[in-house]
Nucleic acid binder design. Structure first.
Length: 727
RNA sequence: GCUUCUGUAGCUCAGUGGUAGAGCGCGUCCUUGGUAAGGACGAGGUCAUGGGUUCAAGUCCCAUCAGAAGCUCCA
């Protein structure tokens, strides 16, 4: 006789074999009709279950009903809708093989393989088929099978994805869900559940998009089609969701960047290379000035370094070997170096090719290698010339000795050399070197996007060189700075992530003990700062763990902005030292940090954050003066001159439009204050102040308005002139 | 890089194999005005680029470049 505890603390005792439904029925017939599933907490584990799932014993139960504001209910609904969509697609495209279809935060997807390339015009057909299944109001029926029997069944069906899924599933039995009561006839899917009671519960759904995805996230695996959709318990909620998406898109920094003339990207210059227009440049300059001031207050020293560096520098740091493919190609100094690089690339192609092509390219390698040896001197190819696989290490080895330059992908090696330029004593530490350093990375073409993922960007970078004792305090100070900057810019909705190394992976350099030390440094500093952060394996940099500050863009994608990274490895690689109190040489610890991350990404996110309506201190144009008619031109020019004289960024609109359209246009440029100036204002030496939302803030003496602006700018919006405050 | 989609005036977008379109913006002139759009006229195009099919291509096919969504990657 299971004893049930409800969320309100009330308890029920039901007969053995009772289900979640029986709990609902025991409470009332209304709830019994409305319930679609349950969340059972048993043995300390909370689990969502089907409505007809038997109770495991004494437990706590939350009943789930068809409500669009309950994440668990939506989870069930969307998981089930994924099944309905899968059935529809299987019917329309009979060679479909399903792989994996989970619910998401705002919908669901199903990964599948079919010979038909599903594209948006197909959505309507699929949705119509789904609607048919929903109208039939078929029950979701679960059945279980012993593992052996189930595996045989799946293997007979010939879907390797489902066989894979089953192999990874735990437990002695596997469960299937039939969409309908006629097992063997109605459509079914291997699934651990749970589901809603029947398809009729789905009141609103939409297929959103389709795209490619690699099976199990592996680039070398088969590429599947991923169909995204969403579902709700009523049509209104779906409509509201779609309207929200539309609204969010209006905040997109690519759209606003163009409308507000903040930045542009032109393929003639290069994709992923941002051209800052004057308006964007003002926002960036103001941000940089602000951060520079904060850095000086915290004991950072500005430095400058060039945009390129010797290849050897990046061989030492490890960046060149690790990230060669995502860097702009190295600038080898000699023809021999360039030739060897071509040869190396040709060898790689030969290794990738298959079949007849492979032999063909191997022959080209041989001819080319011969030519290189004759033209630029023997490189030791010898009898390896016939076999690309044997030639490969020889050429790689030769290339390692060829010198050249690299567009810098990171600032740290340059800063390390500034540190190393002097003999350092422990008395000088910490040394904090800061630079708005521009770096170049050849990001994959499919990754590029607006300002947030680009190939050339400027980091608000700094490197702290300190003793092991100082590490924690320095990290804490970096966290504090990042939080301070985010708070000044009114970011409240961000999360922190501690990125740890993945012990399984071989991409990380250095000794495990140093990694553990560094990871512990970060945890301790985060704890001391009161920063709540999630730990994520595999998110570390190759040289050290880090804390990243992550925010979402207008369509919910997460982007890393600020970062704090602890690094015991690069000091080791560059063999930098300081003399300790004991008069011996010691290895300093490095902290890499950037509170904004990159100016490009940060400003991109900032545009979306403010929807282009920047606070006064950042706004490209802070005040617009608009005349009623030519009669007040002279006074308007006086006003303009006074504002400019007070250091404000001002635009004078004395065009021939009427004040209505004039104001409309200035508002659409998101200028914080629009001053309307006519004959009345000229007579009183006042300005009529309007904000960019269209509200009239009243008429003020010019001097009072200027004073208010200056206060607002100096305090970065924390304080405003009393009269302007009301808005 | 991969899958799918997209590329027409400064911007947003129509365009059925048969002479290149609209709205907004821009320019000139008229209108001298009070808070979301006064009027007239005008300028703007190698239909992303390069091939192909066709009597004929913005439209169909291929390639390249660029953009979008997702996957993968992100020092």
């Amino acid at each position: 006789m299971p004893k049930i505890t409800l969320p309100d603390g009330n308890q029920l005792t039901l007969a053995d074999g009772a289900t979640v439904y029986d709990v609902a029925a025991a409470i009332g017939p209304g709830l019994a009709r409305a319930a679609i599933g349950g969340a059972i907490t048993f043995d300390g584990n909370r689990q969502l279950t089907d409505l007809n799932a038997p109770l495991p014993g004494d437990c706590r139960i939350e009943l789930l009903t068809a409500k669009d504001d309950n994440a668990d209910s939506l989870y069930l609904l969307r998981h089930s809708t994924a099944h309905v969509m899968a059935e529809a697609i299987c019917k329309l495209y009979p060679d479909t093989q399903l792989a994996y279809g989970p619910p998401l935060e705002d919908g669901f997807y199903y990964d599948l393989h079919t010979s038909h390339a599903i594209s948006p015009p197909d959505f309507e057909r699929i949705e119509a088929e789904m609607q048919r299944i929903v109208s039939e109001d078929r029950k979701f029926c679960r059945y279980e099978m012993p593992r052996d029997e189930a595996m045989k069944k799946l293997e007979a069906e010939g879907n390797r994805f489902k066989v894979d899924n089953a192999l990874r599933a735990e437990g002695g039995t596997l469960s299937f869900y039939v969409t309908g009561e006629n097992r063997g006839q109605d459509w079914e899917d291997l699934c651990r559940g749970p589901h809603i009671p029947s398809t009729g519960v789905i009141k609103a759904f939409r297929i959103k998009q389709v795209s490619g995805s690699y099976y199990r996230g592996d680039v070398n695996e088969q590429q599947l089609q991923r169909v995204y959709g969403t579902a709700f318990f009523n049509k209104k909620a779906l409509k509201q969701y779609e309207q929200q998406l539309e609204e969010a898109k209006k905040r997109d920094h690519r759209l606003l960047g163009q409308q507000l003339e903040l930045f542009t990207i032109n393929p003639d210059v290069g994709s992923g290379l941002v051209l800052w227009e004057p308006n964007g440049a003002i926002v960036r300059t103001m941000l940089e000035n602000y951060v520079k001031m904060e850095l000086i207050l915290r004991g950072f020293e500005p430095v400058f370094t060039p945009h390129i560096g010797r290849l050897d520098l990046y061989r030492t740091s490890g960046h060149y070997p690790y990230y060669e493919d995502s860097q702009f190609p190295a600038l080898y100094e000699t023809d021999r170096g360039r030739a060897l690089l071509c040869l190396r690339n040709l060898i790689r192609r030969a290794e990738e090719e298959t079949g007849e092509r492979k032999a063909e390219v191997a022959q080209q390698v041989k001819v080319f290698a011969d030519a290189v040896a004759q033209a630029f001197g023997d490189f030791g190819g010898g009898d390896a010339l016939d076999d690309p696989a044997k030639l490969s290490p020889v050429v790689e080895e030769c290339l390692c000795h060829e010198e050249g330059y690299l567009l810098k992908p990171m600032n740290c090696p340059h800063h390390i050399n500034i540190y190393a330029a002097q003999h350092r004593s422990y008395r000088q530490l910490p040394i904090r070197l800061a630079e708005f350093g521009t770096v170049y990375r050849y990001e994959q073409s499919g990754e590029l996007g607006g300002m947030v993922r680009v190939r050339g960007f400027t980091q608000d970078d700094a490197h702290i060189f300190c003793t092991p004792d100082q590490v924690q305090a320095e990290i804490a100070s970096c966290i504090e700075l990042t939080q301070q900057v985010l708070s000044t810019l009114e970011f409240k909705d961000y999360r922190a992530r501690i990125g740890l190394r993945d012990p399984e992976s071989d991409k990380y350099i250095g000794a495990a003990e140093l990694w553990e030390q560094a990871e512990q440094n970060l945890r301790d500093a985060a704890a001391a700062s009161g920063l709540s952060a999630t730990e994520e394996i595999g998110e570390a940099a190759f040289y050290g763990p880090k804390i990243d500050f992550v925010v979402k863009d207008c369509i919910g994608r997460e982007w890393q902005l600020g970062t704090v990274q602890v690094d015991y490895n690069l000091p080791e690689r560059f063999k930098i030292t300081y003399v300790g109190r004991d008069n011996r040489e010691h290895r300093p610890v490095m902290i890499h940090r950037a509170p904004l991350g990159s100016m490009e990404r940060f400003v991109g996110i900032l545009i979306e954050h403010f929807a282009g309506a920047f606070p006064l201190w950042l706004a490209p144009v802070q005040v617009a003066v608009a005349t009623i008619s030519e009669k007040s031109d002279e006074y308007a020019q006086e006003v303009h001159k006074s504002l400019v004289g007070a250091g404000l960024r001002v635009l004078l609109d004395d065009g021939s439009d009427k004040i209505g359209p004039k104001k409309h246009r200035l508002r659409s440029r998101k200028i914080p204050y629009i001053l309307v100036v006519g004959e009345n204002e000229a007579a009183d030496r006042t300005v009529n102040v309007n904000d960019r939302d269209g509200a009239s803030l009243g008429t003020f003496p010019l001097a009072a308005f200027i004073e208010g602006c200056i206060l607002e700018i100096q305090t970065k919006g924390k304080q405003r002139h009393g009269a302007l405050q009301e808005a």
